[in-house]
């Protein structure tokens, strides 16, 4: 199936424009909201690629859950005061970063121009996926059969993350609070 070029350029343009806003805006809340727009644009591109489940998940999980968390954190930390200034002193650094980014872009463009995907994307062609009951069914069946092990391991990963979060977020002991008032402020 061909992707409609109009919609592709619309969503791709949106994604690029809002990514730039995300990086360039000083205000973290504005950055976060433009990141939400980037995720919406990605979801549009996924939908054009017939990956409807991924498109929905992108909106639900990234634009929904994760970004809401981001914005809560920004709100609670009241991070609208910039904690550091990446002013003029870093102009050369910025230039180098932009230059390297462009080099990477050139490499990627060259690579994708000169490569064809593996043998027509293997097992999961559009027709086959439709015949097997659509994206959602195929993904869920694979996730709970062939990819059960990585799926279960993710819970170990999340457990580690939770314990780490508890260890970091626990109430400070008294002596730590004293040290904090002596100038070591987090």
């Amino acid at each position: 199936m061909e992707i409609s070029p109009v919609f592709f350029y619309l969503f791709a343009g949106m994604a690029i424009a809002f990514s730039l806003v995300t990086v360039l805006k000083k205000n973290p809340a504005a950055s976060a909201f433009s990141l939400v727009m980037v995720f919406f644009a990605f979801a549009g591109i996924y939908a054009l690629l017939d990956a409807h489940l991924i498109a929905t998940l992108q909106i639900l999980v990234y634009a929904g859950a994760i970004m809401v968390l981001f914005i809560f954190v920004i709100m609670l930390l009241s991070a609208d005061v910039p904690s550091f200034d990446l002013g003029r002193s870093h102009v050369t650094l910025r230039g180098a970063a932009a230059g390297l980014g462009l080099v990477l872009l050139a490499v990627l463009v060259w690579v994708f121009k000169n490569s064809t995907p593996a043998a027509g994307s293997g097992l999961f062609t559009v027709d086959r996926v439709v015949a097997a009951g659509g994206n959602t069914q195929v993904i869920s069946e694979l996730m709970f059969s062939q990819y059960l092990w990585p799926f279960e391991l993710t819970s170990v990963l999340l457990l580690t993350a939770i314990i780490g979060a508890v260890a970091i977020a626990k109430r400070r002991p008294a002596h730590a609070a004293q040290a904090a008032t002596k100038g070591v402020r987090s």
């Binding site: 993710t154 170990v156 990963l157 993350a161 780490g164 970091i168 730590a176």
Partner: peptide, 21 residues
Amino acid sequence: IALETLSLGVYVLVGFRRADR
């Protein structure tokens, strides 16, 4: 996934002395 599991654990362990800058 395993790489992330071990990395997450170690990130937190590195920052375990929270009172120290």
